[in-house]
């Protein structure tokens, strides 16, 4: 007799042989699970390297800021000297580091979950892992767009100030 209190498996909910569109359902085959394990393992290394990169970038940013603060003399006026450009540079770099950390952290969590899910057949972890790929890509795309925009603006500003 079927146990009515049994909680349905989230990954197989509403599925038997066909999916909602009446097509054969996609399967979490052994090949796919092996691949997920490899992705999780390599992905964790990438994200740790990216987070290390962010740490190093922050150290450099703080050194630059400290150097600017100690060498700058007199009262601070935003529109005087090179102050506006320096403030813009620090702010844009800080935003870029923040966006990259968001992407790397989302990626690290996704990769950790994908690895755990595929290694120990944990469906919840696998679902969370695959769900986490989108935010990772989203934050990295936003970071890339911001980087391109700020770099382009900086180039235009430097070009105008030199000519």
């Amino acid at each position: 007799m079927e146990n009515k209190d049994e909680i349905p498996d989230e990954t197989s909910q509403g599925h038997s042989e066909l999916n909602a569109e009446g097509q054969p359902a996609l399967l979490l085959s052994d090949v796919l699970m092996d691949r997920a394990r490899q992705i999780g393992r390599a992905g964790k290394i990438v994200m740790i390297l990216f987070l290390t990169l962010c740490g190093l970038y922050t150290v450099n940013l703080l050194i630059d800021f400290w150097e600017w603060q100690t060498t700058r003399s007199g009262d601070f006026y935003l529109l005087e000297g090179n102050n506006a450009y320096q403030v813009w540079r620090f702010c844009s770099t800080a935003i870029m580091v923040y966006l990259f950390v968001r992407g790397a952290w989302a990626g690290f969590q996704a990769m950790r979950n994908i690895y755990t899910g595929s290694r120990y057949d944990d469906d919840d972890a696998l679902l969370n892992g695959f769900e986490g790929i989108k935010p990772m890509l989203k934050w990295f795309t936003i970071w890339g767009a911001f980087w391109l925009l700020s770099d382009l603006l900086e180039k235009i500003y430097l070009w105008n100030s030199l000519n």
Partner: peptide, 15 residues
Amino acid sequence: APEDARPAGEWLEGY
């Protein structure tokens, strides 16, 4: 596999 593999499910396909 793939006969004994689990279906991915609507949630996963949605993600």
